[in-house]
Amino acid sequence: MTDLITQIVTPTTHDLGQFEVRRVLPSKARQMVGPFIFVDEFGPGQLDIGTGMDVRPHPHINLATVTWLFQGAIDHRDTLGTFSTIRPGTVNLMTAGRGIAHSERSPEDERSKGPMLYGMQTWLALPDGKEEIDPAFEAVSDLPKIEDKGVTACVIMGELWGQRAATTTHADTIYSEILLGPNGSIPIDSEADERAVMLVGGEATIGNCTLTPYELAVLKPGETMTLSSESGGRVMLLGGEAFTTRRHVWWNFVSSDRERINQAKDDWREGRFGKVPDDEGEFIPLPDVPKTVSYP
């Protein structure tokens, strides 16, 4: 560790054949950074012509999913009746609250040319008192951009560099994509309780610390520091308020109450989440052993 980076979380990498998915949260090393309890980076990768990504309908509770793409497109459908094509520059926020199911699939026009997949899938735990709010969906494209010293930064959620995104936040949250040009640099705000950066393309340093691709570097609280690059890079900044109440994770469910997760398991088995319109023919069954679990 260094005087600026307090922890490094190494991702678990899943090779899906034509692209890789790298998961840094939750892990044995750390469960959350601010409200972020699940962080996946996927791609870059290109699928074969005529194929696509097909994530069948599946449920969530007590969390919000945030999808942000660098390349490609994904069709989102959910039990609210939402249909939205996710594209770069637009953040898709699905608040599960008391329960929602959705699917994510490559659009037909992407399949015909071989879909590109490159982006971030993150979950935000909902704070105490808001875990069971009504489910909701929003797609926000009018996001603030900061351009300075060879850098373009997009504020996806929360307030950074004096600009606030219109995206709904249920807890204090910061989330940004930072594109560094050659010799570009930008200060990293110090207000959030917890912050971390992930290099997802090119090269970059924080202070005099070189970032390793796809590792999550947790930053020292309250310290102003500078992110920079000699040749150019893409970095995600994420974090927000520290949660004082533990969250449990099992499969696609997050909650402060283990019994609430058990109820969600029963609800999915019994079909009580409802159907996803125009995607009713299949679903992901409840697993015996989930890939996402709480760690002691």
Rank of each mutant, 00 (worst) to 15 (best):
T6Q: 13
Q7T: 11
V9E: 08
T12M: 07
H14D: 13
F19G: 11
E20G: 05
R23M: 00
L25K: 08
A29V: 12
A29Q: 15
A29S: 15
P35N: 14
P35R: 12
P35F: 05
V39C: 13
F42T: 01
F42I: 07
T51P: 05
T51C: 04
T51K: 14
D54I: 10
V55T: 10
V55N: 13
R56T: 10
H58W: 13
H60F: 06
F70G: 03
D78F: 04
T79L: 00
T79P: 03
L80T: 07
L80Y: 13
G81V: 13
F83L: 14
S84Q: 08
V91L: 06
T95A: 07
R98D: 00
S106I: 04
S106G: 07
D109H: 13
D109V: 06
R111Y: 03
R111C: 02
K113Q: 13
G114M: 05
G114A: 07
L117D: 01
Y118W: 15
G119N: 09
M120P: 10
Q121F: 09
W123E: 00
D128H: 10
D128C: 04
E132Q: 10
P135M: 01
F137M: 08
E138V: 02
I146G: 11
C154H: 00
E159K: 07
W161V: 05
W161K: 10
G162E: 04
A165Q: 02
T167C: 05
I174C: 14
Y175K: 03
L179C: 11
G181W: 02
P182L: 04
P182A: 04
G184A: 04
S185V: 03
S185M: 12
I186A: 02
I186R: 00
D193Y: 07
E194Y: 03
A196Q: 02
V200H: 05
G202H: 02
T205I: 02
C209N: 15
P213S: 08
L216Y: 01
K220W: 09
M225T: 15
L227F: 10
E230Q: 15
G232Q: 13
G233P: 02
M236V: 12
M236T: 08
A242F: 06
T244K: 14
R246G: 00
H248Q: 09
H248G: 03
V249N: 04
S255E: 08
S256F: 03
D257N: 15
D257K: 12
N262M: 06
N262T: 10
K265I: 14
D266F: 00
D267N: 15
D267S: 14
W268S: 02
W268M: 02
R269V: 07
R269I: 09
E270I: 09
R272N: 11
F273M: 05
K275F: 09
V276K: 01
V276Q: 06
G281I: 06
F283W: 15
P285R: 05
D288F: 12
D288L: 12
V289A: 06
T292R: 13
T292P: 11
V293K: 15
P296K: 07
